[in-house]
Amino acid sequence: MQPLMILMLILILACGLCVALTRNLLVAAVVFMAQSLAMSVVWILLQSPDLAITQAAVGAGIDSLLLFVTLRRIHAVDAAAQQEEGQAAPEEGGALHGENP
């Protein structure tokens, strides 16, 4: 068992837990993207380069793009930006969180 493999497996699990526990959807999407990248390293370690290319293109590419464009169309992304600027989030910011207030 290589140390890199163990590291990646831990990273994948940590990302999974983070996605499950965070209430900010934007954070969840970004962490999910990171998990896909870790997964494609694992594919390389498992001697499946086909899967590594596909996973990188899909998980970190198309899946995340679609996720981001959906989040933006439902106002979640810009609400997050506003929150960071210290302004009160608009009402639609409710979509940002896992649970509605």
Partner: peptide
């Protein structure tokens, strides 16, 4: 374990986006 995290999200989280992420993790 990853399957389990995703499965739990898919079943228990009420937020649709989180459900989708959970489904993707289940498949991963």
């Amino acid at each position: 374990a990853l399957f389990g995290i995703g499965f739990t999200l898919l079943l228990l989280d009420r937020n649709l986006i989180k459900k989708i992420l959970g489904f993707s993790m289940t498949d991963s």
